[in-house]
Write a protein that binds this DNA or RNA. Structure first.
Lengths: 228, 228
DNA sequence: ATGCTTGACATTTGATCAAAAAGCAATATT
DNA sequence: AATATTGCTTTTTGATCAAATGTCAAGCAT
C-alpha cells in the first residue's frame, strides 16, 4: 500500500555522494582545469550545502588522485607535467589491455557500436564535450564487462587524473584529426581475438596521449574559481 | 629567534590525518580482520575524537579499497574470496615488477639489507607482526626509490586490500616455511640486472599468495569490534 | 626604496546537535 | 509455531559554531 521508495535513482542518495559524482563528472568532462585551486567552502557555496558533505567528497577525490592536496591546506586540480603523463600512460598501458582481455567474452557489442556511432557524430559536429563523454563511455562499457572491480576502479582513477589535461588539449586541437581505434576494437571483439583487441586498446591509449605530448604546454594556469 | 615549529613529526598533523595513519597501520599489521564491521562512532569512541575527523579518514580508506561500504550504510573490512585474490594478485604482478625496474638505479641497497636482516630475525623468532612489517618495509623501500608516485600509491592500496587476509593466514601458518626472495632481489640490484630483480619480485608476490591460496577458508568471520 | 612585521581576512578543522534512516528485537496475530 | 508489524536503539548524515591556522596586503622601520 505504501511505496515510500522513489523510482528516481537520484533521490535518497546522500549529499556527499551526489557531490562526489557531480565533481567527478566535472573533472572528467571539462569543468575543472589543471592548476585550478579548489576551496571547500567555494564548493559548498556553489552547491548550496554545508561544509560537512563537501569534506567527504573532496577527501575521496584526493584519495583517488583526482585532486591534489599540497602540504599546507591548499587543494587544486593537479598540474600535468611530462613525467606525470609518462607514468599515467605506463599504468594505463598495463591495466587497460588486461581489462579488455577479461571483458572480451562478456561485453555487449551492440552497446559498444551504439556508443561508437554517437562518437562519430560528436567528431563530425566537432563537439569536444560529447567526444570525451563517448570515449569514456566506450572504454568503460568494455571494461565493466570484465567484472574485475578493482582494476576498473583503478582505471577510473587514472582517467580522472588525466581528464582535466586531456580536456585542455582537446579544446585546443579540436576533434578533426582524431583517429578512431574503436572500430578495430569492435571487430576484434567480434572475432574473439584477444591480441587484436589489446593492440587496438594500446593504440588508442598511446595515440590519445601522443597528440597530448606534441602539444605546447599550457602557459597560464589561472586560478579562476568562478564566484558568480 | 622563535622556533615555534616542533621537531616531533607527530604533532600538528590534523586529527583526521593521524586517524587515517593509525587505521592504515591497523589494517596493514593485524588489528583488523576480514569481515569485521566498522562503525564511525565506534572508531570515534575508541580514539576519543568526534565524528567529523573519523568520517574523513574512513571515507579515504573506503576510496582506497581498504574498507568496503555495502550499499546501505555498513562499513566493513573486505572479505576475501578466490576471485578477489586472483585480481589483486594480477594487478600486483603487473605493477610491482615495473616499480622495481624504475627503482633499481636509485635504491639504497644498504637500507634493503638492513631491513632484510631484521626480517630474518623476525622469521627466526616466529614473530608474525615483525615479519609483516619488515616485508612491507622492504618492498616499499624499494618502490619508493622509483619516484613513481602514482604507481606507489596504487601499490599501497593493493597491499592495504590484501593485508587483513594475509595477516589471518600468516597467523595460522606461522613464519616457519617462509622462503626469502629478498636476498635474490638484493643481488639482482647489486648487479643491476633488471630482469633478475623483476623475477625475484614476481616470485615473492606469487609465493606469498600461493600459500595463501592453499590455506583453508576462514570459517567464522566474527564481527568483534572490541568495545573495551 | 626595500625588507620585515603586523593585523585583517579567508579557510580549514573539530565538536556538537538535531533529524533521518536502518537495524534489531519483542510482541501480536493468524 | 511462524510471520508480519511495531517501536526502540544505534548509526549516519548534514548543519552550525568556535577555534586554529594560513594567506595576503598594508604599514613601518631602516
Amino acid at each position: 500500500m505504501d511505496l515510500p521508495q522513489q523510482d528516481l535513482d537520484d533521490v535518497n542518495v546522500p549529499t556527499h555522494e551526489r557531490l562526489y559524482r557531480d565533481l567527478k563528472e566535472g573533472l572528467l568532462f571539462g569543468q575543472f582545469r589543471p592548476g585550478m585551486s579548489v576551496t571547500l567552502q567555494g564548493i559548498a557555496d556553489e552547491h548550496q550545502v554545508s561544509l560537512t558533505p563537501v569534506r567527504e567528497a573532496i577527501r575521496r577525490l584526493v584519495a583517488e588522485g583526482a585532486l591534489e592536496m599540497h602540504g599546507n591546506r591548499r587543494i587544486s586540480v593537479p598540474e600535468m607535467d611530462e613525467t606525470r603523463i609518462e607514468e599515467l600512460l605506463a599504468v594505463r598501458l598495463m591495466l587497460e589491455p588486461e581489462l579488455a582481455k577479461r571483458a572480451i567474452d562478456n561485453v555487449d557489442v551492440k552497446l559498444l557500436r551504439a556508443i561508437d556511432d554517437q562518437m562519430d557524430k560528436a567528431i563530425e559536429e566537432g563537439s569536444v564535450d560529447d567526444y570525451l563523454k563517448c570515449n569514456f563511455a566506450f572504454h568503460f562499457a568494455l571494461y565493466r564487462a570484465s567484472n574485475a572491480s578493482i582494476m576498473i576502479s583503478m582505471a577510473e582513477s587514472l582517467w580522472l587524473q588525466m581528464a582535466p589535461y586531456m580536456r585542455v588539449v582537446c579544446g585546443r586541437v579540436g576533434t578533426s584529426n582524431l583517429e578512431d581505434q574503436h572500430k578495430r576494437a569492435i571487430s576484434a571483439i567480434e572475432s574473439k581475438n584477444v591480441r587484436a583487441l589489446q593492440a587496438a586498446i594500446i593504440e588508442d591509449v598511446s595515440s590519445g596521449a601522443a597528440f597530448v605530448r606534441t602539444t605546447p604546454q599550457s602557459e597560464n594556469s589561472t586560478n579562476l574559481i568562478d564566484k558568480s
